[in-house]
Computed example of a mutant assay.
Amino acid sequence: MPVISPWLFYIIDLLDKLREMAIIVFWIIVAVFFLVGFAAFLEGENWEDKTILKLKKGLKLSIIPIVITSVMYIAIPSKETIYKMLVSKYVAYENIDKATDTIKDGVDYIFEKLDGNK
């Protein structure tokens, strides 16, 4: 039986991809937000009141995913940090002097194995 569950590696990779998607979605929404705002600024006099109201509602609603993706990006640690946390879990209090080297060696070993599988 492995010391570290293989499912943990899957979850770590999944969280890393979720973190990357959050930042991509964030920037797409911000770009659309500014493009629509800029277009409304340039063509605002020629648009109907219904169109302007819809744009304002859409821009207000876009704040929700911006906040959600920002929180996701901040709250989900990076892949490297998760691996460090995982390795540090297995360091005993008796070996606290060796913990720094052990964690670094463990993380380096994990990244070598992961890079070797690609």
Rank of each mutant, 00 (worst) to 15 (best):
L59R: 08
N95Q: 14
S88A: 15
F38E: 15
M1V: 06
I96H: 08
F111E: 11
W47Q: 12
Y73P: 01
F34W: 10
G37Y: 01
M21W: 11
V107H: 13
I68W: 05
I11N: 02
K118E: 15
F111V: 04
Y83V: 02
I11K: 07
K60V: 10
K118I: 12
G44Y: 09
D13K: 01
D101I: 01
L55D: 13
V67K: 11
I24S: 09
I63R: 10
L14I: 00
D105N: 12
I12P: 00
I24D: 12
D108K: 03
M85H: 10
K50G: 11
L114M: 14
V25W: 15
G106S: 13
E45V: 12
A31V: 06
I96Y: 10
I68H: 09
V67F: 05
W7Y: 08
V87N: 13
P77M: 03
I23W: 05
Y109K: 05
N117V: 14
K54I: 03
V71E: 02
E112I: 05
E45R: 06
S78E: 03
G116H: 03
K60R: 14
I24L: 11
A31S: 15
Y83R: 02
M21K: 15
D105G: 08
K113T: 00
M21L: 14
F34C: 06
D105I: 04
V67C: 02
Y109N: 02
D115Q: 08
K118G: 14
L53Y: 01
D13L: 00
T102D: 09
I29G: 01
D105V: 00
Y83T: 00
D16M: 03
I66G: 10
F111W: 10
D97Y: 14
G58F: 07
L114N: 12
V91M: 08
D101K: 11
Y10D: 09
R19L: 01
D49P: 02
A99T: 03
L14Q: 04
N46L: 13
F33D: 12
I4L: 09
Y109A: 11
E112V: 13
K98D: 00
W27K: 00
L114D: 07
Y83C: 03
A39T: 12
F111Y: 10
I64N: 07
E20D: 13
F9V: 05
G116I: 06
M1D: 05
F26L: 01
S62C: 14
D49F: 12
L114Y: 11
L42H: 02
K84C: 11
G116E: 09
L35H: 04
V25T: 10
I12H: 03
K84W: 07
M85K: 14
F33H: 07
D13N: 11
K57G: 05
K60D: 14
P65T: 14
F33A: 04
S5M: 06
I11P: 00
K57Q: 04
K50R: 13
K98G: 06
F38A: 15
T69F: 12
D13F: 00
V30K: 05
S62I: 00
S78H: 13
Y109C: 05
V3P: 12
K89I: 13
A22K: 13
I64Y: 04
